[in-house]
Amino acid sequence: MKVGIVGYGAYIPKWRIKAENIAKVWGQDAQTITNGIGVHEKSVPSLDEDTATIAVEAARNAMKRANGVKPSEISAVYVGSESHPYAVKPTAVTVAEALGLTPYVTAADTEFACKAATAGIQACLGLVKGGYMKYGMSIGADTAQSAPGDALEYTAAAGGAAYIIGGDGVLAEIEGTCSYTQDVPDFWRREGSLYPKHAGRFTGEPAYFEQIVKCSKSLMEKLGTKPSDYTYVVFHMPNGKFPLKAASILGFDTKQVTPSLIVQKIGNTYSGSSLLGLAAVLDRAKPGERVLMTSYGSGAGSDSFSITVTDQIEERRRLAPPVQYYIERKGYLSYSIYAKNRKLFRE
């Protein structure tokens, strides 16, 4: 049975803040920063948006593209995030209720820094392929937190993407997946802390590159594929530089990466990052084209997927707005309004 993506949907909040407006507040040089991280502006949620609302918007777009799938046929909902609105009470139940999937559905929140939702996709693949259900859904969404003045403030953004996995009406087949996981203390947030801590440059070599490169290689070896077999490659995008470097280590060229490199315009959407990159690729890919996607979650691990787009893509993607629409739908905020929206002022 061909199993893969039956529907996908994106959502990015409307508001943006420019890197130069953040730099001004902290007395840093905007040019140096944007050159260093390759991010010019990032998305900011409205006061009434959070991971649950972003997940619902993305999931509703995925339902539109999963033409003909009835809500009652989706029997699993996973929401991957590191900014779930409640410490205890799943985001996934709100999403399931808002989509009308309840009550005969399993729902859970997944956590693994920025790769929590690709873990959810793997769970859906297993449940569908094992014959336990017809369709499952996994959503990655975040309203990423960053301490005021921290380097992360330039990139920590908001957005999400949803994927419906099934064996009927597949618009992109997932031919294989594998993972690579190690205990690496590159980025963490303790219970009760408002903002994450990170190990600065340490996030690069032993963390991001080690997992992304080894995981991607291992999947290509397993499937007998090589970089030139893929039209597109999508990586987790903590900044605008890391994905390009990972691509070059693996032997992909820049052209294969740039269509998914949306981080420059919206920042790092954490659990939404690689999945929004994949959505941007599905918005333009032709039938028969192949995509390699590798997520990354601090702590640390990667999940790789090898995907082939089917001839159903062209008709179905038109049923919901593309990532590019959300990137261009924007309004700018000053640092002070941004601080209000992100609740940086506390009583």
């Binding site: 619902v56 918005d283 038109r318 707005p321 629409y325």
Partner: peptide
């Protein structure tokens, strides 16, 4: 936290992105 519907302006022009080959 109570969630629910609010309204936003409609934009029906996103279809054009699919007609432009280099989105």
């Amino acid at each position: 936290i109570s969630y629910g519907f609010k309204f936003r302006p409609v934009n029906d022009h996103w279809g054009k992105y699919y007609d432009n080959k280099d989105i």
